[in-house]
Nucleic acid binder design. Structure first.
Lengths: 251, 251
DNA sequence: TTCGATTTGTTCGTATGTATT
DNA sequence: TAATACATACGAACAAATCGA
């Protein structure tokens, strides 16, 4: 018998890759919501007309990419931005003594504007496209450490206003995910060193001209679609940016 | 029949984990040298008395950790530090225009000293232990961009002298690997911003007091054994540090 | 508390495809 | 062409964790 899937059109060679991209498509379409279980491996196998091993191989890769989360005896779930597990995957600032702490955030401003040139290229949209621009202050140990300047395409977040934003429960990416179905799964960051300008220095309670770490981040969703551009300015007097490749472990 | 391995003592639960740690042990012991193939999956399966699927699962993880490299039709090889594939995994400085370029390096000094406090804690050795300390200048596009201050335990590199070091063919980690059997498989980096001191500024041909990126790196071998501590100072006027989690792709 | 159904985790085995030498 | 090695796909059995009856 020919598998119902193998008989389909133009599989990108291996069967499990086809299964993976179909699951990814459904994930992107919101068929299963974050935190919810996807169908069991046995059910998916029957549905796709492939063996359970093929399903497992497809899911293996999605789990490695942190898009799905397996739990023995329970099921396989769409990863959320509310677990500690994923928090420190997107937040890299730690104390110089090695301490890891989640920041308290304070919204400083929320404006509707249009994409400047830099915003546009990073977000792959046309200059002048409506955007939301949010300024955020992150405190660690009660002291301001990071100043965030966030730009997102307005079209992705239709009715987002400053009260919704400031009154959110968890992280920003958690808000994107839970209320707008926008799932940040990967980030790309470029770091450089600079001198604090007067306005930023005031936010961070440091002197103008003090050295600061500047992080330019693009947040990406399924199929590497950019959904947020963020410039963070960090006071690294007592904190550092941690880049620990492959200590993800648990593999 | 009971598998020859399962009958052995105290497997850390799953069989494939035991297989993995045995392969890792042999790798660390230098049974197979970098660039050489390890035995075929079928041969390993017979040797361990387990199924080929179990071998594959163990090797899968070692490949994901970039310790091994599979090539269909050829075999499975011990990863080396000479392939482009791995170079940019350990070198993160790119042009602000996105250009990736391998640096020209110039050795500035090579000294035999002893571990200072910071060196000792990072390398997990006692303060005062003999070390080698090397200063290196990295040029991109002909201009100095990175100043490296490298400390390694002398015991790991018995007869290493400055001519061997300066006259090496490829990368520094390639030298560690090929001549001393020291295999760097992972790095952990902590980044901060600072003002250039006079001596470093002179090396980088910038003004003292200019902002620089400071990278403190620990290079790790099998079982997370630290083998090198390196402080890099980067002029980020025209370059950036790229942290691209999970664009490793090919998975 | 116990039991059974469900779901993922591990291990085995086999067959066939594809790349390399 | 033939042999070898990894890649894909299938199927089956049992273990371990979870959850509700």
């Amino acid at each position: 018998m020919i598998g119902t899937l193998a008989a389909g059109a133009l599989a990108p060679h291996p069967l499990y890759k086809e299964v993976k991209s179909r699951i990814t498509r459904d994930l992107a379409a919101g068929v299963w919501k974050p935190g919810e279980p996807i169908p069991s491996e046995a059910r998916l196998a029957r549905g796709f007309g492939v063996s359970i091993g093929t399903i497992r191989k497809a899911i293996d890769e999605l789990v490695a990419e942190r898009i799905l989360l397996r739990q023995q005896g329970r099921g396989t779930f769409v990863a959320t931005h509310s677990e500690d597990r994923t928090l420190f995957y997107f937040f890299h600032i730690v104390g110089k003594d090695g301490s890891r702490e989640l920041p308290m955030t304070e919204m400083l401003s929320f404006r509707k504007t249009t994409a400047r040139k830099e915003d546009a290229t990073r977000l792959a949209i046309a200059p002048g496209t409506p955007t939301l621009r949010i300024q955020n202050l992150l405190k660690l140990g009660g002291k301001p450490v990071v100043f965030d300047d966030i730009v997102v395409p307005g079209a992705l977040f239709p009715d987002l206003d400053e009260h919704t934003f400031a009154g959110r429960d968890g992280t920003i990416y958690g808000l994107y995910q839970a209320r707008y179905g926008i799932n940040v799964i990967r980030i790309s960051e470029r770091l450089s060193s600079a001198l604090a300008t007067g306005t930023v220095a005031a936010r961070l309670a440091i002197e103008a001209g003090a050295p600061v770490l500047v992080i330019k981040r693009v947040a990406l969703s399924y199929n590497d679609t950019p959904v947020e551009y963020r410039v963070s300015t960090v006071n690294t007097a007592a904190h550092e940016y941690l880049s620990d490749l492959w200590k993800t472990e648990g593999r």
